[in-house]
Amino acid sequence: MELTPSEQDRLLIFTAAQLAQSRRDRGLKLNHPEAVALICHAVIEAARDGASHSQALAIGQSVVRSDELLPGVASMLFGVAVEAVFDDGRRLVVVDFPGSDTDVPGQVTRLSSSPTVTPSDVVTLDVHNDSSVQISVTTHMHFFEVNPRLRFDREKAYGRHLNIPAGEHVDFPAGSTVSVKLLPITGERVMIGFAGLVDGSLDAPGAKAQAMEKAKKLGYLDGGAS
């Protein structure tokens, strides 16, 4: 058979699924490994039967029912990833079990809304995208140094970043104008790297004027007054 390690792993799924099926046949409620094995096995066999990716996913989502599971198991069947051999090659299928459960192992409970901070020093700017492609800017990027094709008041953006939750971003579609809010960068306020416009302390004497000069020389679009 010349089985590869991945093929041998499929046999492990098969064996676990057979075990789970025999337990289900005896009327037992399924636990986490049993349910995962049945889902993966169903996806793999659907692919073998010639199913499309979406058909195999649907079969994986429906092969077990909520009432066949032990309490808490439904909530653990999130992101079950398995690779199956489809007719057009090996494909990854990720199954999120559609059922839910009130018994949730590892449940996090928050009794009041998520913590937020109300910033005091916010600058609002209109930003126009002069380029032919969409530009996206993430939360903590030094906004002063973002893509030269974004036209806005660069001076007002000096030493600031977007006021959005960490890890999110703002999209600037080609040719459009988007209003953004900016917060002061915190910490020691040292900007090393990026486009090299500052490359040092933001608040050093003359640093801002020098950075403005450099940006202008390099053709960074600036919608500012000067």
Binding site: V104, P105, G106, Q107, V108, T109, L111, S114, P115, G167
Partner: peptide, 25 residues
Amino acid sequence: DELREIDQDIAVHGARAGDFVRLGD
């Protein structure tokens, strides 16, 4: 909306100060 926002925050950041976490089952 608030509940949805909390679920999303927990999914991204995990538990925060004051949150209650059940250990396994």
